[in-house]
């Protein structure tokens, strides 16, 4: 008998930049829920209003869009490290952030951390860690592409210096060089599977073989650049093919993300185990995801 299809959570994917084809393919590949961290959009923002509308979209339009393809959408809200370098703007964004943290689909503060490891980045990273403490929320930390190892270590030191419980912090974009220190310090280690750079999925198989599945999370970080929104289901399949026990695959590609972000009290398996049936006739502020197609309507069935 064929084994039951795996359920997948991609806990780091910038769906705002992806198409409806991606949503369809992800749902077909078993993705039941996604978490979209706030990030930069390629073009630097110059007005606080641009951030406001972006955050509003992450708690409004995008969850609606995802629901139209049967995927539950959550997000983390934060000021990204790159744009933290525009200090006057960053100060205005910092004022705005608290207004979003209590919204229904916001499961943490993220993605925050260092890019070039400048003093401004350091200042706003620390301020946001304090905000996380005030709200008792999980933190999703972006680690730098350049000078990664030092940047990762510094991110963790600063979290500890501010008194955060490492179990409340996920350190993202790890590689073979950083994973051990992250796990040893009690943080959650997330791995981004990129098609060409950073971690490829074969490397991920070896990481799980070596370090096991405890406190390890796989994500795609798919965004507006060359990236793969199917990275997590593809990696899950590759792990199974390479003899990684199914239990470890479930933990790294579903359960660990759920256990971690579920601590927010806002992310619950019943959201996708007993979902509202897809009904593409629905509208959000009078907008539809359809452009003249026949709406897809399914009965409310337990997947």
């Amino acid at each position: 008998m064929e084994e039951e299809k795996l359920m997948i959570i991609d806990p780091h994917v910038h769906m705002t930049s992806r198409t409806t084809d991606d949503y369809e393919a992800m749902a077909a590949a078993g993705v039941v829920a996604v978490i979209e961290p706030s990030f930069w959009l390629g073009q630097p923002r110059t007005q606080v209003g641009s951030f406001q509308d972006y955050f509003s979209s992450l708690v409004g339009w995008e969850p609606f869009r995802a629901s139209q393809f049967g995927i539950k959408h959550y997000c983390t809200i934060g000021l990204n490290s790159k744009e933290a370098n525009n200090i006057p703007l960053a100060e205005e964004v910092m004022d705005l952030l608290p207004l979003y943290l209590h919204k229904d689909n916001v499961v943490g503060i993220g993605e925050i951390g260092y890019d070039d490891q400048t003093p401004a980045e350091d200042r706003f990273f620390r301020e946001q860690l304090e905000l996380a403490k005030t709200f008792n929320m999980m933190v999703q930390v972006h680690t730098p592409h350049r000078d990664k190892k030092a940047g990762t270590l510094k991110s963790m030191e600063v979290c500890l210096e501010h008194g955060l419980d490492p179990g409340m912090v996920v350190i993202d974009h790890n590689n073979e060089e950083t994973v051990k220190s992250v796990l040893d310090k009690g943080f959650i280690a997330a791995f981004t599977i990129y098609p060409k750079t950073k971690m490829g999925n074969q490397r991920m198989v070896e990481v799980v073989r070596k370090f096991g599945s405890t406190n390890i999370i796989v994500d795609s970080s798919a965004d507006w650049g060359v990236s793969d929104p199917l990275a997590v289901p593809k990696t899950a399949n590759l792990m199974l093919q390479n003899g990684i026990p199914r239990e470890d695959v479930v933990k790294t590609c579903y359960q660990n993300a759920l256990d971690f972000f579920g601590r927010s009290g806002k992310m619950k398996p019943e959201h996708w185990l007993t979902p509202e049936a897809i009904d593409q006739r629905k509208l959000f502020n009078n907008n539809s995801v359809l452009r003249g197609q026949e709406p897809k309507v399914e009965n409310n069935k337990i997947l």
Binding site: D95, L97, P98, L99, L101, H102, L131, F135
Partner: peptide, 12 residues
């Protein structure tokens, strides 16, 4: 303003 927003959110 930030303190006002934090309090508004934390009321929940």
């Amino acid at each position: 303003k930030q303190k006002l927003y934090i309090t508004y959110s934390l009321c929940a």
